[in-house]
Structure formats: C-alpha cells, structure tokens
Amino acid sequence: MAETTARAEPRSSGTPRPATRPVAVRFDEVHFSYGSIGVLEGASFHIHAGEFAALLGPNGSGKTTMLKLLLGLLRPDAGRVLVFGEEARAASRQVGYVPQAVVYDPAFPISVAEVVLMGRLRGSFGRYGRADQEAAARAMNEADVAGLASRPYAALSGGQRRRVLVARALAAEPRLLVLDEPTSNMDAESEAQLFQSLGRLKGRATILIVTHDTGFVSALTDSVLCLGDREGRRGAVVHHPAAPVEGEPPKAFGGAALRVLHEAELPEDGCFSCEGEER
C-alpha cells in the first residue's frame, strides 16, 4: 500500500474542543506484573470524555491486563487508574463492558432479554424492577437486537451474540463503553450493524475499543492509542494519528476505515486533542 497519506493531518472529529475537556480515563504511571512477569511498566495515557478511542496492541502486549485494570478487576502495583476521576473499582458501575466472548455452559437456559437485563445488575443485592426492564428494552433497540429478545442466547450466531453483549453493556446506561476485540469472528452484516449502533452512541458516551488489529481503525475513531514495548520498557502507550486511505477504502467497520500512521507519534500521555496542555 502506498504511504502517500503518511503526512496527513491528524484527524479531528470536527467538533470544536474546549480548552479543558474532562478526562474519562487516566492511567498515571501504572505498573502491573503477574508475579515476576512485568506487564505494564509505567503506562500513562488519557482519554477525553465523549471521545471514540481505539487501544491497539499486538497479542501479549498487555491489552487484557489494561482492560482488567480499567474495569477494576485488577489493582495496579503502583500508579493510578482513574475513571471519571474516581478509582477504577469505584467507577465500575459507570462502565459498560463488552467482552470478546462469554465462556458459559451452552446448556445454560437463558433468553436474549435475560442476558441484556444482566447489565442492570447492581452489586450483591437487589432484584430487577420495571425501570430495569425499560432500560434493557431501550438497549436492545439501540443495539438492533430487539427482534431477538425471546430467542435462547445459545441459538444465536457469533455476531448476534456480540451485539447482545453490547446491548447488555448499554442497559447500564454507561458513561464509558469498553469493547474487547468487537469485530473478531464477526460476519460483515453484524459488524456493520455494530458500528451503526456505535455511531449513534458516539458523543453521548466515551467509547474505547481494544483490538490487536494495528493496521486500521473505524472512521468513527478520534484517538488512537498504541500499546507495546518501547525503549526496553513493557507496556508503554503512545498516540498515533490516523487518516483515510487513498484510493479504495477497505470495507470494514461497516464503512470506511482509517489507516493508523505508526510513523508519527506523540510522546507518552500526549494527546492530539489537548497536546498535553491539561497536565
């Protein structure tokens, strides 16, 4: 592929940005290791509220660990993970999480509507009420799965299941939606529907997509973060710009894709939308 667009302007979403945009996610010098195996050695980055961000990294780069830290399932050894200014664990109810897949017993009898309602779970106590049913119904409409509501979850295709998991995350009316490898093993139609749903949601919630595909991102993307080893340090994050590909755009993400320009980068915790002015 020609690299003619390498000097392209960093892409902006087109909306004017106030000087101090609130930050949705901030990793501040985060260290994490499994025993003696270091995974993150001082990772720092931030994502602004309302942004559509992509976190890219090859397999084994620490994406899953970063995701678990963000969801409050793991705690950092050092440094801080803040979500809307709170510790990740305290903020987890404001986060909608779409896992890559659910490893569950296929003999588990459960309908799509019941899976989506699970997004309304509140802690260790409390049954679902009318408000929960209504929120789940809205989420099923947003994720285009309302027609599947009474189907058994096990009877769906992989792509349909992923959209049901998106609906489950949306049922919580999250301020931050995190999707883990949303397009892996997905048919083209489901992928297009998913990105239509995300496009409608963009701006109302902060969206973070985590993926091992380091070549292209959806045209909805405002901000590209790349996770990998840098100067002998594991789990460093840099920002890359992304730009439309000249000629025929690859058909993915339900429309045009952007090429990630790996040759241009900002220093750690830099950001194309605030150029570090906020820190």
Partner: peptide
C-alpha cells in the same frame, strides 16, 4: 433463590461481568 436470583444467574452465566457490576461473586 428469590432474593438473589439476579446475582445467581449473572455469576453463573458470566462471572467476570457480574464482578464489573459490583457483585461479590466470591461470596455468592
């Protein structure tokens, strides 16, 4: 079973997700 039905169902179906929703799946 009546009181904790959502927690039982969620922690059996997808324990990690139940934890992100603040359920103490270890106690369940």
């Amino acid at each position: 079973a009546w009181l904790f039905y959502p927690q039982l169902e969620a922690s059996a179906f997808d324990e990690e997700f139940a934890r992100t929703r603040g359920a103490r799946t270890d106690l369940v």
